[in-house]
Design a protein around this nucleic acid. Structure first.
Lengths: 224, 224, 224, 224
DNA sequence: CATGAATGAGCTTTCATTCAT
DNA sequence: GATGAATGAAAGCTCATTCAT
């Protein structure tokens, strides 16, 4: 459609640089998550953020820079959400269950996060690779996981020691895939992916993970 | 760079419609997988397929139609690969291990498949939804999985009965995520995702899945 | 849409060059009349004529040549139609009435003729100018008109002598315009241009023209 | 050729949206009139208006919209010209003569108007049909015509009452056709259509129309 | 004689980006 | 600090035309 000039509806907003930047970022997050990098339109970001396009270029530089900022913002938001997660007061068993539930809900409620991860991976990680402070961002979560695994080992709840990163990747895998691939799964397997189905998957995944942590490596695989 | 002749790159190829179409499809698969839908360039497809652009439009209609054809082609290729999988001669335990290994290797060796799935899901499945014959395409694989689970139940190897679709989705989840998200995982968790790491993940996933199939639902979660 | 290759529905027609050419010409006439020169599509002509495109180029050369042939064909058809007009057996008064009626009906029934004239004029007459035999084509009609006017003068029916070309242009003007401009007249003046309306116009035009032929130039304009 | 500077033809014009739009419209009017809808080139419009192509799309939307705007503009310009016509102070007889002369001159001096009408009619009036305010635009002229006819009737100059629309269509027909069809008339009839010829046609048409308005319907067609 | 296959050139349209106020 | 106006470069798509069989 284009701009169809001579309409000009935007009201002259208060001059608050920080707020402007925040609005742009939010709009960008949404735009990139919805349309991918190449599909995202600077025009739409400007419109949704209720700013003029030059503002975006002033604040960020170019489209790639906006994207990078949005990606970082995504991780920041994630970290904030993860702060609400506290596994320390739960038993190791419950902590694992809570971790799975939390992760699943997190992806479910913030689909833009899945989208941004997907996009960044499709781009070969070229952007996140340059953001050297990323590891720190997620270290808090990883610390909690490490803690749970250690406590479980000490308490005898878990026999098996696992690298917390590898363990968390298992958790994430099980939660991420059914959500990121909802549409193809539905079309190809006819699976009715809804909240109930996801909840069941959540429970099963917890049990499966717990079972793995508990198994005695020395023991032979038993029959039923 | 790699061309023999310095100029005049298009050799007067034989006029073979079927072959031309095949070349376009192959190039399209690659282009869409590499750049996503919006990022894909019809120009590049033409160049890589060594045809002129009008051919593409003559054969397929428009960019969306080329994409749809490429997506379908991806599933066709997958089905062909899956024909090589035979779980029937293996014990239920080994069959599960083989399924996981096969799935992992499949994703690993055909990254374009992961990419196309990802892209299609980002597009809300709008294309695959219209391809009504998709379920049939994957039913062969699903049949094999169902068979393994049944045999395991009958033989007493597995206590637990699971929907074959749900089970396969677990398998796929565990194999898909580490590959699809290689780049972000590497950047954020510092995980060195290489073949060895994936092989270990593969083994662990097999054991975890087997453990879940074997567990006695009535038994209480035991300590170590 | 394009050709969407691999469909190929045309049945292999008998090899009759003259007939093929005729079919192309007919299709071209229709296509140019409907879409104008720039809007006409060689593809559509081929499809409607049920021939392959190269045939068209073989027979005519290029799009302009097809257009030229169609334009000539239009005049040829017109001349054929005009052969059916015979004013000689009518009284001068009736002959004029018949001429008007005939002209009006002619335009009404062969809208493609009006269209082709319109198109050619919009193109500055660049094509018809090169067709040196055109004057001859219409001389038959003009001869009839000249005849009527002379007979009227001799018989005393008409006082006024007029150049037959100028007279015929008056006739043509009155018949052409309401038909060629039907759409804008309807939209702008709200005139309901249908057969009845055209018939009335036809009668009025006849009377008006007759009145003009009859008027005594020397006489003063009289009141009522 | 006409440019002052040998290169760099686009001077950094003042940024005046209204003026830009006007320039585009003017160029579009000319381009469509000269080449028809399908033959018109957005590129050429941009060049003639001395703007970049995106401006055109920003201001109007697409080619069709530009065309619609040009068509409307044509009628607006016409109305403005018609404002200069004042028949009220003339005798009914002279008013008719003036109307014919005015109409003829109008077409003669603004050939783009004839062209646009022609184009719109070839397109089936699809555009003007949607412009619901068109009737109002021409009502001023029609009012004047109605007035003249009434005054003529009252004064006894005209015996005959005619629908002003129908009458005006006669006038328009007689003026429009020789101009719109100049090229074919010249080629086919060998008529040397120049200003003199048109002027004579103008006078004759006036007399013919007046004769028709004056004729006594009850009287029998008289001989000379 | 006839045509399916193919293409160069050009069309409309879009988009990230900058200029001028 | 902020924005309406503007554009170069390219994208998707079309079309008259030719090639090879």
């Amino acid at each position: 459609m284009g701009t169809m000039k001579a309409e000009a509806s935007r009201t002259p907003r208060k001059r608050d640089a920080a707020d402007t930047k925040r609005r742009i970022l939010k709009a960008a997050l949404n735009e990139f998550a919805t349309h991918g990098f190449a599909g995202a339109r600077v025009d739409r970001i400007a419109q949704e953020a209720d700013v003029s396009k030059p503002m975006i270029y002033d604040y960020f530089g170019d489209k790639s820079a906006v994207y990078a900022a949005a990606l970082r913002e995504a991780y920041v938001k994630i970290r904030e959400a993860e702060k609400k997660l506290s596994l320390d007061k739960l038993s190791p068993n419950d902590a694992v269950r809570e971790l799975v539930r939390f992760t699943m809900n997190h992806y479910r409620r913030n689909p833009w996060f899945i989208s941004l991860l997907t996009i960044e991976n499709m781009r070969g990680g070229q952007t996140i690779r340059t953001m050297s402070d990323m590891p720190r961002v997620q270290s808090v979560l990883l610390e909690q996981v490490r803690n749970v695994l250690q406590r479980g080992k000490l308490s005898g709840d878990f026999c098996n020691e696992m690298d917390p990163r590898d363990f968390y990747i298992f958790v994430a895998s099980l939660c991420y895939f059914p959500i990121s691939n909802t549409h193809t799964l539905r079309a190809v397997f006819g699976v009715p992916i809804d909240n109930d189905w996801l909840n069941r998957r959540c429970d099963e995944a917890s049990e499966m993970l717990l079972g793995y942590l508990k198994r005695d490596i020395s023991a032979k695989p038993s029959d039923c």
